[in-house]
Each structure stands twice: as C-alpha cells, then as structure tokens.
Amino acid sequence: MSLLTRLNDDMKQAMKNKDKERLSVIRMVKASLQNESIKLGKSELSEDEDLTILSRELKQRKDSLQEFKSAGREDLVEKLEMEIEIIQEYMPEQLSDEELSAIIQETIQETGASSKKDMGKVMSAIMPKVKGKADGSKINKLVQQFLN
C-alpha cells in the first residue's frame, strides 16, 4: 500500500473519529507530499521520495521541539510531541543501536576510513543504507566514536 493511499485511509478514519489533531497532521503530511510531487513534476512519488519527505517533516518538528523546550513553551511542546508520534507511525521501523553499530562498522571497513578526516566519506556511504530507519545525528555520533 502506498503512503498516499494509507494517508487517505487514515484521514477518513480520523474524520469519522473526529480526531482533529491526527487529521491536521495527516493533512500537513499529504500537502508536503503533493507539493513535492508538483515540484518534481511527477504524478506519483517513489517510496524513497516519500521517505525523504517524511524524514524532513519529522526533523522539522524535532528541531522546533528543542526550540520550544528551551523557550519554556509547554503548550507547544505537547502539540509537537503528538505530531512527531503520528508521523513516526508512517516511518519504517527504526534500527536498534546494535544493528546501527554493525552497519557503521561494515561501512567504515568498506570505505577504508581510519580517521575523522574520512567522516564525510563514511556518512555519505551510510545514509542511503539507513534512510528513514535511523536519526542522522545519532549516526553521526556513532561514526565519530568508531573513527576515534
């Protein structure tokens, strides 16, 4: 089932359940998908493109969450946490720390990286492998640990 089909089904269910918060988040995600599809001139996006957009939406909210927490805006923090939770339902299952470490070590061996100077090479090789399945900042920290 494509992401757009799933979003449409969930949107109908949210309307029936009068779940305004879920409905709002689904509409925002759908709008982002449709905007991207128009921008790229495609009628339908690939799974990879869908995942990129979902990841971007999630990252925006996580960044905003940190800002709101530091500003003491608890009302907005709660709203964003709920939005993040809903968007994560559409993301692929996240990799465990052990799985992520194994992928990072394997990629470091593949690229022949040995120091922090090779960080960019390692990151560019890892990101396509774990797209949507792990947070970029978490990957960055683990790669730094392994390259020390």
Rank of each mutant, 00 (worst) to 15 (best):
E78T: 10
D97M: 10
Q60T: 06
K116W: 11
M82L: 11
R73H: 01
K117N: 15
I86V: 02
K131G: 07
G112Q: 11
I87F: 10
V77H: 00
S64Q: 05
S96V: 03
A134R: 00
P128E: 13
E85K: 06
E67H: 11
V77N: 00
I103R: 02
I86W: 00
D75C: 07
I108N: 10
V122S: 08
L80E: 04
I87V: 10
F68I: 00
D135C: 03
L100P: 00
Q88G: 02
K69G: 01
S115Q: 11
V130A: 15
K131R: 12
E89F: 08
E93G: 09
M119S: 13
M127P: 04
A134E: 00
K121Y: 13
M123D: 08
M119Y: 15
G112Y: 14
R61N: 08
D118Q: 06
S101H: 05
G120H: 14
M82E: 07
G132K: 12
K79W: 14
R73V: 00
G132W: 06
K116I: 09
K116H: 08
K62S: 11
I108C: 09
A71C: 04
E85Q: 11
L95H: 08
K133H: 09
E74N: 05
L95I: 10
K79I: 12
M123Y: 11
